[in-house]
Simulated assay, not measured.
Amino acid sequence: MEITLIQGDITEQAVDAVVNAANSSLMGGGGVDGAIHRRGGPAILEECRALRASRYADGLPTGQAVATTAGRLPARWVVHTVGPVYARSEDRSPLLASCHVESLKVADTLGAATVAFPAISTGVYGWPMDDAARIALTTVRQASTSVTEVRFVLYDAEAYAAFTRARDALG
């Protein structure tokens, strides 16, 4: 699998699947989640509402993933995953790793070859960027998947630099 790092806007990625750092409600929010819902349009929210009405009445659990249409995005699907909120007092890194593994599993069921990930949990959920980058890159490298290309699409120079440092440290 090819892993690339890009500084840019994840909503502009022409890939099979874009991963959304969603909240458990699946109803949109701030950051990446809000950007994906705004750019993708109402079709994404419609499918999210249907998922809430059927399979996820209590919301999508942290570390899990589910797919919807990508609406007006230049992707085929959006894979929604709920990252953990960072806590110094508790190691939640297995949940952050699970977001990546479960997103790739969903991508595999869709037949997606190319997947774009954001820096999950690093926004309002407070995960330190360097640690999130290490967990994300390590997990994706070790994942058993049919996906041939993973792009980490980092919104700003700080995130891009953190992912670059982690990639270089992992060799």
Rank of each mutant, 00 (worst) to 15 (best):
Y86H: 15
T145S: 14
A161W: 02
G30L: 02
L154V: 05
S54L: 07
L73T: 06
S121L: 02
H100P: 12
G71V: 00
T4S: 15
V32E: 08
M1K: 07
A113S: 15
A67G: 04
V18T: 05
V124T: 13
V150H: 04
A107M: 07
D131I: 00
T62K: 10
P61I: 05
P94H: 03
S24L: 03
L137V: 09
S54V: 08
P61Y: 07
K105D: 08
I36D: 10
L73S: 11
R39G: 00
P61V: 11
T138L: 04
I36H: 08
L170F: 01
E158R: 15
L45Y: 13
A107K: 09
M27D: 05
L73A: 05
N23H: 07
E46S: 13
L170W: 01
E149C: 14
S89W: 11
V82Q: 15
H37T: 06
K105T: 13
L5P: 06
G123K: 01
A35N: 05
V15N: 06
S24T: 08
R134K: 14
Q13M: 06
Y160I: 11
V82S: 14
G40H: 08
A70F: 03
S98P: 11
G123L: 02
L95I: 09
I3A: 02
I120W: 03
